[in-house]
């Protein structure tokens, strides 16, 4: 059965695109057929983070407007056979994506993939609403920081009111992916704790991704951490979140701990 999942946050820069790429790659590695879809019209970046920026010929809008077939626009990942990308358009026309067009493309994607991950643009405008519209479930990406948590709360409200599921009176499953978490700063009271954020947002936890140098290294080279750096802490955290997303793991979320960070700081930067 095909699942459409929106990766959303409200606030920009919290890690939606990185998380979409990392989770998509991890799910595809486990044999699932995965398509990651960039909804950020005019500011596409998922292609860059996935290392496919030079292979975009047709994009989402070309398909939505009927100028290209879906098969022509899908970019198959060179590292993982079951991973595909549908890039956003770089057009400046924000209204180029229509409700009807998106509905048709998502319908087609459902029939060929196990997972369709929709990378939402920041904000609460049309693009963000379109990205969440057809979702069966949502990943809310947040940083342990006041403005991100506030915006996530707003997005949760929209997920519960502006999506097809909500309009049909069905519940929208929402999970929190806490990114850029620093266990040292959190335990010293400098940063909101995981419990604080969970209590405030009151949605279940999908995973905690520690602040990591690997993330920048991954986007620099266009290789998601779950592909090239899967043994690092960030890579492992994303792999674990992907297993939970795929329904393969009911184990408690691994919380990055302080000791490990201290240890790696002292002895092994390479291991971090």
């Amino acid at each position: 059965m095909s699942k459409v999942i929106v990766v959303t946050s409200g606030k920009g820069g919290v890690g939606k695109t990185t998380s979409t790429a990392s989770l998509g790659a991890a799910l595809a590695q486990s044999g699932k057929r995965v398509c990651v879809v960039d909804f950020d019209v005019g500011l596409r970046n998922l292609d860059l983070v996935m290392g496919a920026e030079r292979r975009v010929v047709f994009d989402f809008i070309n398909v939505a407007q009927g100028d290209a077939k879906l098969a022509q626009a899908l970019i198959r990942d060179k590292r993982i056979d079951t991973l595909h990308l549908l890039a956003a358009s770089q057009t400046r026309d924000k209204d180029a994506l229509t409700y009807e067009g998106v509905e048709r493309v998502i319908g087609e994607l459902r029939s060929s993939f196990d997972f369709v991950l929709c990378d939402s643009p920041a904000g609460i405008e049309r693009g963000a609403l379109l990205a969440m519209r057809h979702a069966d479930q949502a990943i809310v990406v947040a940083n342990p920081e006041v403005s991100s948590v506030r915006d996530s709360d707003r997005i949760i409200g929209l997920l519960d009111s502006k999506t097809l599921r909500a309009e049909r009176g069905e519940t929208m499953e929402k999970q929190l992916l806490l990114t850029r978490f620093d266990p040292v700063r959190s335990s010293s009271g400098e940063m909101l704790s995981i419990e604080d954020v969970l209590e405030i947002l009151s949605i279940p936890l999908l995973g905690v991704i520690p602040e990591s140098k690997e993330i920048l290294r991954a986007s620099n080279t266009g290789a998601p951490v779950t592909i090239n750096a899967s043994a690092t802490r960030a890579g492992l955290a994303y792999l674990e979140a992907a297993r939970r997303l795929g329904g393969e793991s009911a184990a408690p979320v691994t919380i990055p701990d302080e000791k490990k960070t201290f240890f790696t700081r002292l002895f092994g930067r390479r291991a971090a």
Partner: peptide
Amino acid sequence: PRATAPVARERLQILL
């Protein structure tokens, strides 16, 4: 003086 997280938490709870 470093423990500002409780302040953040309280402000968020009231605001939200």
